[in-house]
């Protein structure tokens, strides 16, 4: 009788935890990724900056690794409640401002002085950022060059947007990372690629040897290796 009760209680407790957990996951998982919101699962330079600041002020005890995990989330929440912000653990515009982290306004970068070649600059920069942040600068230019080589190639769509959003073409598009705010380096790289710099020797494919699933890709002759990526053309 007693054992039954305990089991019932345990099950009950687990169910509750489960429910709470799923709601919580639902809440903290980025849905439509707001360009200047950093939260659970975010990565990159801005996250690193957040961690650094919070560590400095004693909110954060983990590593400054640029990965927005549980500890960062807790630290951001603590920071928010101390500073009279909504303590949701999501570092949005207000929170970042309070931390003194400059969030670049992407409309400024696009500027009013566009020249013809810059029409797709920000889209290209977003693709480069999503696919290749953390890669050496040359590798970022190379990703831009592959996109442009595909536009010029008969077997691919004939526009930059067509190439980037082709189903299955880029992982960063599939998982939504393309919606992250591109960093300065990605924008510079996009510009160099649009200006004609092609470190890849005309490549139309690239892949990461450590994670590439397709065996077929290895039949593509290699033109260049930069950072974690291998570039090639057929």
């Amino acid at each position: 009788m007693k054992a039954k009760k305990i089991i019932l209680l345990m099950v009950n407790l687990i169910m509750f935890l489960n429910l709470a957990y799923s709601f919580w996951i639902y809440k903290v998982t980025p849905k439509a990724v707001d360009t200047i919101t950093y939260t659970w699962g975010s990565e990159g330079d801005v996250v690193r900056q957040i961690q650094q600041k919070l560590k400095q002020w004693g909110y954060y005890e983990g590593n400054v690794d640029g990965k927005y995990g549980y500890k960062t989330w807790e630290a951001v929440k603590a920071f928010q409640s101390k500073n009279g912000l909504k303590a949701d653990g999501i570092a949005g515009k207000q929170t970042l401002e309070k931390m003194g982290i400059q969030v670049k306004d992407s409309s400024r970068k696009q500027g009013g002085d566009n020249v013809a070649s810059n029409k797709d600059l920000m889209l290209m920069a977003a693709a480069i950022h999503g696919e290749g942040r953390g890669e050496p600068y040359e590798g970022q230019v190379a990703i831009g060059a592959v996109i442009l080589n595909r536009v010029r190639h008969s077997s691919f769509p004939n526009t930059i947007a067509g190439v980037i959003y082709q189903p299955g073409a880029f992982d960063a598009v599939a998982d939504g990372q393309i919606n992250l705010e591109p960093g300065d380096s990605a924008i510079k790289a996009a510009r160099d690629a649009l200006n004609g710099w092609d470190p890849t020797g005309g490549a139309i494919y690239y892949w990461n040897p450590a994670t590439a699933k397709s065996k077929w890709i290895w039949s593509v002759p290699i033109t260049k290796r930069i950072g974690k990526h291998v570039f090639g053309k057929k």
């Binding site: 008969s154 077997s155 769509p157 004939n158 067509g162 189903p167 299955g168 077929w216």
Partner: peptide, 29 residues
């Protein structure tokens, strides 16, 4: 050109569809 646009939007594996896409690009061009 419209055929190429539409075919390229389908989730076929690139290796399978590239020749047909190329044919359409060339036919249009």
């Amino acid at each position: 050109s419209s055929a190429q646009d539409n075919l390229a939007e389908l989730p076929y594996d690139h290796n399978t569809i590239s020749k047909a896409l190329k044919f359409l690009s060339q036919a249009s061009d």
